[in-house]
């Protein structure tokens, strides 16, 4: 059964069709990538699925339940978490605290207990901290835990965001360009991490520009152009699809022709 089902999703920005009638689905343990040229509507699609934008058309179903347009923090409770294309790290907090913050749903409790620092509050925090440490080790940031997050390198921040998203123990994980700005070694690490997480049964939706990575790890690819789905299928099939090649190369071919003409 599919965990995440997208049905005819669409949104306009000031009369401009940003995303139009996009449908696909995603099962447990699957890695589905959304690709397409810049401005194709990939991040907008992500923002609608994760509740940051309210879609104007269509439905989002999570494990069969209609979750269209519900707030991100309620989606988090239902097991959907995400990372961001342009990092959204809690800059002033330490690396460890960022990872603990990901455990919010597990560690939150009555304010009064927190104010009085009751044993129950300390126990919740300590459990979250232990789990956060393990996650940081897993993404290779164990030794940086005491640093202020703002001081990390770009690649490390990308991994920290993934760790924070994993802290929710999500069923569905949305990764928006997790390898952007990372060097080859870092990309490979993220690559391996994604495969591992998927192997544990998490459904992963990925936006990524690194085509090699996309072709290597995806089970299924959805191609967007001008906000519409123009193709989908297995990597090998999609990479040969003439419409996909046109969407990516078409304008370039024309540009080259113009330059010569």
């Amino acid at each position: 059964m599919s965990l995440l089902q997208i049905e005819g999703l669409g949104i306009d920005f000031g009369g401009l069709r940003a995303v139009h009638d996009v449908s696909f689905s995603l099962g447990a343990g699957e890695i589905v990538s959304v690709i397409g040229p810049n401005g194709a509507g990939k991040t907008t699609l992500f923002n609608m699925i994760s509740g940051v934008y309210r879609p104007e058309h269509g439905r989002v179903r999570l494990a069969g339940e209609d979750v269209t347009g519900i707030e991100p923090h309620l989606l988090a409770r239902r097991g959907l978490s995400r990372t961001f294309q342009n990092l959204q790290i809690f800059q002033a907090m330490t690396v460890l605290e960022n990872a603990i913050a990901g455990h919010h749903l597990h560690e939150k409790g009555p304010v009064l207990a927190d104010l009085l620092s009751l044993p129950s509050s300390r126990r919740r925090a300590a459990e979250a901290e232990a789990s956060a440490r393990m996650l940081l080790d897993r993404v290779g940031l164990g030794r940086a835990e005491a640093q202020e997050a703002g001081s990390l390198s770009y690649g490390a921040l990308k991994r920290l965001e993934i760790a924070r998203a994993l802290a929710l123990k999500p069923r569905v994980l949305l990764l928006d360009e997790p390898a952007a700005g990372c060097n080859a070694v870092e990309t490979e690490e993220i690559d391996r991490l994604i495969a591992e997480v998927a192997a544990e049964g998490v459904a992963i939706l990925l936006v990524e520009h690194d085509m090699k990575m996309v072709m290597r790890i995806s089970n299924h690819i959805v191609v967007l152009d001008h906000g519409e789905k123009i193709a989908e299928g297995a990597p090998a099939k999609v990479s040969r699809d003439p419409r996909v090649i046109e969407a990516y190369l078409g304008p370039q071919v024309r540009e080259t022709a113009d330059a010569h003409g």
Partner: peptide
């Protein structure tokens, strides 16, 4: 305080 949108996505 650091990022409202990120806080939301972790369930705050």
């Amino acid at each position: 305080h650091g990022s409202e949108v990120a806080a939301r996505t972790v369930g705050v």
